Amino acid sequence: MIVDCLGLLLAVMVTAADVQDRDAAFPLLERLHRRFRKVTLVWADGGYTGKLVTWAQRQRRLTVRVVKRTDDMSGFVVLPRRWVVERTLSWLMRSRRLVRDYETRPEVHETMVLWSMTMVMTRRLARQRA
């Protein structure tokens, strides 16, 4: 899942459980690049280091900045930028269909994520108008 700085969904991709997140990031960044050409900086978790960073820079002109946890940290520490995706996931978990694995096809689950995010965004818009 890729979100903007407000936590609003930009791209989502659901894969099987045996696919590593780092491997799924390649087509997800490709999807992001196709839809939002002006995005140039992507903040990522420590698991996305390695050839993904160089590939994104060379192939898609995306700068992938990895936010890592240092070894001297103990317990729970909020890391900059990483909490934005976690917050979006908590918003989406309000939807009953996403709490359990009801869907058998990844495309259907992606659609349910998009539908749930649409509900989150429309509720915000409706609150602002009232």
Rank of each mutant, 00 (worst) to 15 (best):
I2A: 12
V3E: 00
D4H: 04
C5K: 13
C5H: 12
C5I: 05
L6G: 07
G7W: 01
L8G: 05
L9G: 00
A11L: 03
A11M: 01
A11E: 09
V14H: 01
T15M: 10
T15P: 14
A16I: 11
A16L: 14
A17F: 02
Q20I: 10
Q20M: 11
D21M: 08
D21N: 11
R22W: 07
A24E: 14
F26H: 15
L29Y: 00
R31L: 09
L32S: 10
H33K: 07
R34S: 13
R35K: 04
F36L: 02
R37H: 03
R37Q: 14
K38D: 14
K38G: 04
V39Q: 01
V39A: 01
V39C: 06
V39S: 00
T40V: 01
L41K: 05
V42L: 04
V42H: 07
W43C: 09
W43T: 00
W43I: 02
D45I: 11
D45T: 04
G47E: 05
G47M: 02
Y48A: 05
T49R: 14
T49L: 01
K51Y: 03
L52K: 11
L52G: 12
T54E: 11
R58I: 02
Q59W: 12
R61W: 07
R61A: 08
T63Q: 15
V64F: 00
V64P: 09
V64N: 01
R65F: 12
R65S: 08
R65G: 02
R65D: 04
T70I: 06
M73R: 06
S74M: 10
S74K: 11
G75P: 12
F76M: 06
F76D: 14
V77M: 07
P80V: 01
R81L: 02
W83A: 13
W83S: 05
V84D: 12
E86H: 11
T88P: 00
T88F: 09
T88M: 11
L89N: 14
R94M: 12
R94D: 13
S95A: 15
R96M: 09
R97E: 07
R100W: 13
R100Q: 14
R100A: 13
D101T: 08
Y102H: 06
Y102Q: 00
T104I: 13
R105L: 13
P106K: 10
V108I: 03
H109Y: 10
S116A: 15
M117K: 03
T118E: 13
V120I: 10
V120T: 00
M121A: 12
M121D: 02
M121W: 12
T122M: 15
T122H: 12
R123F: 04
L125E: 06
L125I: 13
R127V: 01
R129N: 09
